[in-house]
């Protein structure tokens, strides 16, 4: 409010750059960990950056229409939008982004916005595998949205606010003030939904490189793909920052942010390396049963 808008935009850009680098490195680190678990040396952790430079450096590109252009743009708009309305670090002017202008509902909208844009873009590419991937992705997304939304409702009831900054502020003081301990059921439900959101192994049927070449982005190449790769970094980190804020007491400095987001990400990585893949109908059944019931229970307990 005191900060002029220009300065605020500049700060947001800095914060966005930092989170992009962190998100991409996180992906690289996880690939490295995967490799070490499997007894390989693995790619260097900066491999995602090289990949992105290379994909941007492609000389030719073809297009399939307007939505094909807009699909990756929507996707990255979803990622950036998600991040910009979350306060990344509590109390920091640079990393507070535009969190005063939006609440948790807007962030939820942005999380799903990118997927829908992607669905339209992939649909126009005309590749049959894209269509299969989109159908699977949207079905699965609708399923994990239910426990996610329910656990958000539980938190909103608990803190009587939609403002993320207020929710983070309420969790300060002691580790026992975290939502993880004050409302464990909602946290568990939301973390299960995060597994679906991250599309790691039990719920990776959307991309499934072994069966439908790579799902929705089959036809995307060059700069389109590079945009989507960049977004993967931003969006991943943004989701983790949101979860950190809602359930794990937020962060007061950048090291806390890095440690906490890394730990949250490791949950889905550990689940990912230890479980095989669900079919779409199985994952929908799972999401609509276990985590949904847990989240409902959380709400019922709070209301009572």
């Amino acid at each position: 409010m005191d900060t002029p808008l220009v300065l605020k935009i500049l700060y947001s850009l800095i914060s966005l750059a930092v989170i992009t680098i962190w998100g991409l490195s996180l992906g690289g680190i996880v690939r490295k960990i995967y490799a070490r678990v499997q007894g390989r040396i693995g790619p260097p952790f900066w491999q995602p950056f090289i990949d992105i430079i290379k994909t941007y450096g492609k000389r030719t590109a073809v297009t399939h229409g307007i939505m094909f252009f807009l699909g990756p743009v929507f996707r990255i708009a979803g990622g950036i939008g998600t991040y910009l309305f979350i306060p990344a670090i509590l109390g920091s002017t640079i990393f507070s982004n535009f969190s005063v202008s939006g609440d948790v509902l807007l962030v939820m909208y942005f999380i799903f916005f990118g997927q829908l844009g992607m669905a339209l873009g992939a649909g126009e590419s005309g590749h049959p595998y894209s269509a299969i991937g989109v159908a699977r992705g949207l079905a699965q997304m609708t399923a994990f949205e239910v426990p996610f939304a329910l656990s958000i409702i539980a938190i909103v009831i608990q803190y009587h606010t939609l403002n993320i900054t207020t929710i983070v502020l309420a969790q300060q003081g002691s580790i026992l003030n975290w939502t993880l301990f004050t409302n464990p059921l909602a946290t568990i439900a939301a973390l299960i939904a995060l597994l679906g959101m991250n599309m790691h192994n039990p719920f990776s049927v959307v991309l499934a490189p072994q069966e439908i070449p790579i799902g929705p982005p089959t036809e995307f190449h060059g700069s389109y793909l590079a945009l989507m790769q960049t977004n993967r970094g931003i969006f991943n980190a943004a989701k983790l920052v949101l979860y950190m804020n809602l359930f794990f007491g937020g962060a007061t400095n950048i090291f806390a942010l890095i440690i906490k987001t890394f730990s949250i990400y490791m949950i889905s990585v550990v689940v990912g390396v230890s479980f095989p893949r669900f079919r779409t109908d199985q994952s929908i059944k799972f999401f609509l049963f276990v985590p949904t019931l847990i989240a409902l229970l959380a709400i019922i307990i709070l209301v009572l």
Binding site: R31, A35, Q38, G39, R40, I41, G42, P43, P44, Q47, I50, D51, T55, P209, P213, I214, P217, T218, E219, F220, H221, L225
Partner: peptide, 19 residues
């Protein structure tokens, strides 16, 4: 596989010709 591990040189299999 772990024995040969092309990933350490930044090589990766890609399922579609476009990418």
């Amino acid at each position: 596989t772990a024995r040969f591990d092309m990933f350490r040189y930044g090589m990766a299999p890609r399922p579609t010709p476009r990418q």
